[in-house]
């Protein structure tokens, strides 16, 4: 199901004006059908990166492939990927004309356009907005019109640049819901940039930190699921295949995150103060890409879960693929979003 969508190697990008390198990505693969979140502060290069992937900016160093073809002059990427600005700009026309634009230039028939506009507006929750003037909309409405305008061409990839930057809390929740709806309705890959951490974890399938133009895949396990209460003091998070204790917090949480290095391993069952003690099977062992002394051990506990240990520990504990191992982590090691 998930295929390699973008593959980026040795990408370097500097603005032509001042030659300052704003993006420097050695290696990054993005799979299709997922929500990829690009998390980073303002000025970290998120917008530039999205625009490069959308071919709005021509990259000058390195290689990027889109569906295994070079991104340069890639017509499919041009026609099937759409970028939505932070503070999107609507054409000074009606909502209908805005949303219909992508279909009009693709020479779709008017009946077809009309029904698709209606449908797409209902996906973004703006039924009946067709005749409104774009200038008269609120910021949140403008954003959703812009998303509808992008969606109507049924893109393979939808880029959303900081959709939460200029909207209030209620609208953040709405966009969250919208992303889920888009995923189910259109099945497209969504690459979204944000600096809103809770939003990032809640919507993401995979998360990517971007800082000063460099990406880092975070060393953390991300589980999607819901909270279940079956204890007075502790509460459990259930991903469907794996459940574990987590801090007692009130709220509607969808995502649990556990850093690799907060998970301890032992080769035999031991008594610990940690709430979570589980048995698993090692499915993969690999060297951490940024530190030769560390290895990342992937285990199967119903879900895949990863821990990070030193090479020395690996040797001493004689861990190997297929071997049995015990995992321990405290309830407080779990972050909920």
């Amino acid at each position: 199901m998930s295929e390699l969508l973008y593959s980026i190697r040795n990408l370097k990008y500097a603005y032509p004006q001042n030659e300052e390198v704003v993006l420097d990505i050695d290696r990054l693969d993005l799979e299709s059908g997922k929500v990829h979140v690009l998390l980073g502060p303002n000025g970290s290069g998120k917008t530039t990166f999205l625009k490069i992937l959308n071919r709005l900016i021509e990259y000058n160093q390195g290689e990027i492939t889109f569906m295994r073809e070079s991104l340069k002059q890639n017509k499919v990427a041009r026609q099937k990927t759409v970028y939505v600005h932070q503070n999107p700009l609507l054409f000074s026309a009606t909502v209908y004309d805005n949303v219909a634009y992508g279909l009009r230039i693709r020479k779709a028939g008017p009946k077809n356009i009309s029904s698709l506009v209606k449908k797409t507006l209902s996906v973004v929750g703006l039924e009946g907005f067709e005749k409104r003037r774009s200038q008269a909309l609120s910021a949140g409405e403008k954003q959703r019109v812009a998303i509808a305008r992008a969606l109507i061409i049924k893109p393979d990839v939808l880029f959303l640049d900081e959709p939460t930057a200029s909207v209030d809390k209620a609208n953040v929740a709405r966009i969250e819901g919208l992303l889920t709806a888009i995923k189910t309705e259109y099945g497209c890959t969504i690459i979204v940039s944000t600096h809103n951490i809770p939003f990032a974890y809640r919507v993401c399938d995979s998360i990517l930190h971007l800082e000063e133009g460099k990406t880092a895949e975070p060393l953390e396990n991300i589980f999607k699921g819901e909270l279940i209460v079956n204890d007075e003091q502790f509460i459990q998070f259930d991903s469907g295949k794996f459940h574990f204790y987590c801090p007692y917090l009130e709220g509607d949480f969808k995502t649990a995150v556990i850093d690799y290095d907060r998970i301890f391993l032992s080769s035999a069952p031991v008594e610990t103060s940690a709430r979570n003690n589980v048995q698993g099977t090692i499915s993969k062992i690999e060297t951490a890409y940024n530190n030769e002394n560390l290895v990342i051990v992937e285990m199967d506990v119903g879900e895949k879960i990863k821990s990070c240990i030193t090479k020395k520990s690996l040797k001493e504990m004689r861990l190997c693929i297929g071997g049995r191992v015990y995992l321990h982590f405290k309830a407080s090691a779990v972050r909920l979003y």
Partner: peptide
């Protein structure tokens, strides 16, 4: 500037850009 980017990202070609 966002105007031209919007057109291009939606798949507009030279003639469409001019008309828009």
């Amino acid at each position: 500037g966002r105007f031209y980017e919007t057109l291009v990202t939606l798949g507009a070609k030279g003639r469409n850009v001019l008309a828009a």
